[in-house]
Design a protein around this nucleic acid. Structure first.
Lengths: 108, 108
DNA sequence: TTGTAAGTTCGACATATGTCGAACAATAGA
DNA sequence: TCTATTGTTCGACATATGTCGAACTTACAA
C-alpha cells in the first residue's frame, strides 16, 4: 500500500465508537477472543473469519441509532478494513487481514 | 495500554499532514530510511533515535504555517507518539517506540 | 397480501478539526 | 542592548464529522 494512503486507515479507526465496532468484529473474526457481543447465544462465526449478523449485534450493544451504525460500517468498508455482504437477511462481515497486516508493516 | 484508548493514537495519525510529519520523524529516528527532509545537509540524527531541529525541517518541506505545524506536533505529543524538548535553539524530537509497538500488539 | 424486521439514504444540526495570521516569548548572536 | 530566528498562543473561520429521526427498500413470515 502506498504510504501516503495510510492515514485513511487511521482515520477510519480514529473515532472511538468506530474503533470499538472494528475491534468487536476483529476479535470475533480473527483473534478468537472472548465474545464482546452475542445475540440469543447464537454462534458468531460459523464460518472462519466471517461474522454474521454483525450489524444487529453491534446495534444490540452500542447506544447508537441504526443510521449511525450503518454510517460507521460504511467508513470501515471505505477504508478497506472490512468487507460486508448481505446474504438474505444475514449481514456477513469479514476483516480484510491484508490491510490489517499492512498497518504492522509500516512500522517495521 | 488500555484498548479503549487506542483510538487516540489513531486519531493523531488520521490527518494526512500529521501522518506525514510523523512518518518523516519516524523514518529518520527509527527506520534509518532515506531522509525525507534535510536542511543545509546537516546530519538529522546525531544522537540515535533523536532528530534535531525537527520543527524547522518540517516547516522547510511542508506548505503549512508555523502555527499549524506547532499544533500538529502538540497533537502527536498528546497522543504519546513523540516527545519533544527544546535544547537552546534546537528542537529535539524522539519517537516513543513503546507506543508504536503497542499499535502492532493490538492486532496480534 | 400484509406486516415486520433490518439496513440504507437523506437532511439537519451541533461540535470538532485544520488552518491561518497576528501578537507574544525565548534564545542566540552582533 | 538590539535584532533575527524560532516556536507558542490566541482568535477567527471554513470545512469535516458524528449523530439523529424520518422516510424508504428489501426480504422473509404470517
Amino acid at each position: 500500500m502506498k504510504q501516503s494512503n495510510y492515514f485513511r486507515i487511521f482515520k477510519a479507526l480514529s473515532n472511538e465508537q468506530r474503533f470499538k465496532i472494528f475491534m468487536m468484529i476483529y476479535k470475533q473474526c480473527c483473534a478468537g477472543g472472548e465474545p464482546e457481543f452475542k445475540i440469543k447465544e447464537e454462534p458468531c462465526c460459523p464460518v472462519k473469519g466471517v461474522i454474521e449478523k454483525a450489524f444487529t449485534k453491534v446495534c444490540g450493544c452500542m447506544n447508537l441509532s441504526r443510521s449511525t451504525i450503518s454510517h460507521h460500517f460504511k467508513e470501515l468498508q471505505n477504508a478497506g478494513l472490512i468487507t460486508c455482504e448481505r446474504v438474505g437477511q444475514n449481514f456477513r462481515c469479514r476483516i480484510n487481514e491484508e490491510v490489517v497486516n499492512s498497518i504492522k508493516e509500516i512500522f517495521k
